[in-house]
Nucleic acid binder design. Sequence first.
DNA 1: GTATATAATGAACAAGTTGTTGATTAATCA
DNA 2: TGATTAATCAACAACTTGTTCATTATATAC
Lengths: 217, 217
Amino acid sequence: MTDKMDRRQVRTQQLLRQALLELIESKGIDSITVTDIATHAQVNRGTFYLHYRDVADLLEQWKEEAFERIRARAVQLDLNEAIACALNDEPYPTSIRLLEEFLANGDFFRVMFGPRGDLSYMLRFKELMRSNMYNKITYILPEESEQLVPLDYLLTYLSSANIGILQHWIESGMKLSPREVSLIMMRILCLGPLAATGYKLGKIQLPRISTSAQRDG
Amino acid sequence: MTDKMDRRQVRTQQLLRQALLELIESKGIDSITVTDIATHAQVNRGTFYLHYRDVADLLEQWKEEAFERIRARAVQLDLNEAIACALNDEPYPTSIRLLEEFLANGDFFRVMFGPRGDLSYMLRFKELMRSNMYNKITYILPEESEQLVPLDYLLTYLSSANIGILQHWIESGMKLSPREVSLIMMRILCLGPLAATGYKLGKIQLPRISTSAQRDG
DNA sequence: GTATATAATGAACAAGTTGTTGATTAATCA
DNA sequence: TGATTAATCAACAACTTGTTCATTATATAC
């Protein structure tokens, strides 16, 4: 990315990004002006416009860059492998690599997933995880008539819980190692929803939810 | 709220709120100006300032009002009752009341929890649920040495998954009834984490995660 | 229904932000 | 070192903001 660029440009962009991050943290994205950023970064306001169209553009490029790095790792996740690890109570190596990628951009994600953060951005990651799971999950599920919960809700649950744990890890200063977080995810997620999908494990047999049911148990 | 208010004021505030919601949906909160809202609502710009300090103030009051209505219901939730329902595969009545409250403000929450939504707002609800659970959960947990997952991660998981399911329900047009959603929540959440906390259910015994562990199982 | 109170309008204000331009200065690359 | 390219600075019109004040319109109370 920064290869083959004039060192002055690299410096300017770093200063602008750093200033943006600090401003988001202190007053939220809504009220940040180009003037704010330029002042804070000690860069001429005109210089800002040599690089970006407006504040949203600066943030958007950064978001895109960070997302792409995560996506490259996330597509390598395989639900079957994850479950295999979970059953052995081991962390899932591919998910460790993924968490390391978040760790590498910790400052950025801490702000973007924090109280001044960006919901649309978080939803993008959730959707990434969701669609990634959908491709694999049908092999695992019992017959549809055995499902206790509609598939879309199950996927929502899996991605929400994962992203939630990720967010908590980031917010709390990333004190646990990626390996430890991965193990937590394995334990919490696969022991849970496996049972919820009607998968072996429990002895309790529960009827399926129909969308118009009153009470069928 | 709208009692004892001049009908003109009520009308103006409704117009302003409606305009704000439509503008957030179409272009996001960041670039909305007072001029935008006034034009869209067909209200004089000066009139806006008779009611609110700025755009953020208008949104903030609305958020606060909606949050308070939810909070009043949420504090009545009791984790023990919820688990009792879950074990009988029944929806939890108190959570149905809560979901009905969301339904009553569906238009607002659909925008606030959607792609143009507000992360800080969503985190407030997550925190509400989290702190509410914390007060009750210690009675349920096995001894600390038996816990498979740190308590803060377990709480994060529970609240994230719940809020995630809620968000999916709202986003997908609230087609299921509150009762059906409640039942989904019961099935997905309590079958899962109960096992994950080391609660009876499973025959598999897994060691506890220590924050510096390498591998201890 | 009429009178009184009060909400909404419309016009005008300085102050601040935006996005752009062109001339000048400074840093980097080869 | 010289040529190239980035950053700076000042100035611009257009727009938004937050406020004021006189005027018009509409509820509410009697």
